[in-house]
Nucleic acid binder design. Structure first.
Lengths: 212, 212
DNA sequence: CGGGATCCGTTACGATACTG
DNA sequence: CAGTATCGTAACGGATCCCG
């Protein structure tokens, strides 16, 4: 940790010694989407100073959560990615995102990144208990971006895209955020279209329960 | 938030604007155990400056996560406690604690607070999926302190202590931490005794799976 | 242009002292 | 007991510069 340790014998304090620094969890959020270059991270984290990004990446590397990989000759670029230990931060990110959903201001059309809407919005609402025995593949087509979620074995993952989806959401990322914040599909004025059986939609609403 | 907002349309960034400040999550951890006086918080958070504790409490109050209650005449003292919105931080605390368990240094006898061992150690390992249909009441007697956990309706709560427990752990808090970190009961050299049926112990190990 | 390192003003934090 | 006030220090934020 850059800043001082809490120096307290507590799992939470110890964890925060690793990931409690400013920007650290947002760096991990970005890396949880896959490997990223320094510049990718920088542009995904507007406002972070480059030296601070360096500091955080070093710290996370020292703690074994992140590793730097040098891609071979033709690419010849460095990328950062989560280590196996680093992927254990995912449940933390999901819990934090779920906590944050009600505090997100209303979505403005065009100013919502599709990835955020899928993973930080709908995906964060995932309820592992409701998902038991559920088998569901969802495709999102938001503002031209494509993302997939898959529920299987009680777990949430990014789906492999070779199989047909049970449900397809097509429309704007902002509309998906509104849905995740508790809006009703019929109130979205067609900003989001859903294709799939009524049963599949019901499963979705059960596995990703919106607040209220 | 005391420090600058991340100013990013993201559930995680928004949540961290509320609880991402240094000490904030540890303050919430303390309040998640029940209402606390200013001095209680101070002594539970060694190293925090009093003005900083004031700042954090104000910020959390402004965000509606914490409220200050003035107890009536005979007591005549102020206490802080979580609001209903504030209790939504619990899953975050549990996820962070679970992440931190493997990083906790080996427990030193006598230097582990029983409360931490129960809620930050064993309790943090709670698996809501494994807990479905389970009905289990556990009593901990650690270094003279008493705590209860109850699994019911797939949820984890602090048990009401009027009913008999299914399982009783008696011994040192350090031993319970070792158990949570993956040690085997038989390797604890009697520092922790378990009373209860084999079936109850098996349920416990299923609902609170230790790493590895 | 990607991938940083350096510099410097500003802010938040940490420690201690003090007050109702 | 429950904070407020003060002040030195460390971390952060923004810009610029450097190197392959």
């Amino acid at each position: 940790m850059g800043t001082k340790t809490y120096d307290q014998y507590c799992t939470i304090a110890t964890a925060l010694d690793l990931v409690g620094d400013r920007w650290a969890l947002l760096v991990l959020r970005e890396l949880s989407f896959g490997e990223q270059r320094f510049t990718d991270l920088r542009s995904a984290l507007p406002g972070i100073a480059s030296n601070l990004l360096t500091d955080r990446l070093r710290g996370l590397q020292d703690d074994g959560l992140v590793e730097q990989v040098e891609l071979p000759a033709p690419a010849a670029r460095n990328v950062y990615r989560l280590t196996a230990a680093g992927t254990r931060i995912r449940p933390v990110l999901r819990a934090i995102a779920q906590f944050g959903v009600p505090y997100l201001p209303p979505a403005e059309e065009g100013r919502v990144r599709p990835r955020m809407a899928v993973y930080g919005g709908a995906g964060a609402l995932f309820d592992p208990v409701a998902a038991i025995g559920v088998d569901l593949r969802v495709r999102f087509l938001l503002d031209g971006d494509e993302h997939w979620l898959e529920v299987r074995d009680g777990k949430l993952r990014r789906a492999d895209t070779s199989l047909p989806p049970d449900l397809v959401f097509t429309g704007s990322a902002a509309a998906l955020v509104d849905l995740s914040r508790g809006a009703l599909l019929e109130d979205l004025d067609g900003r989001l279209r859903v294709d799939g059986t009524a049963a599949a939609l019901e499963l979705f609403e059960r596995c990703f329960p919106a607040p209220r």
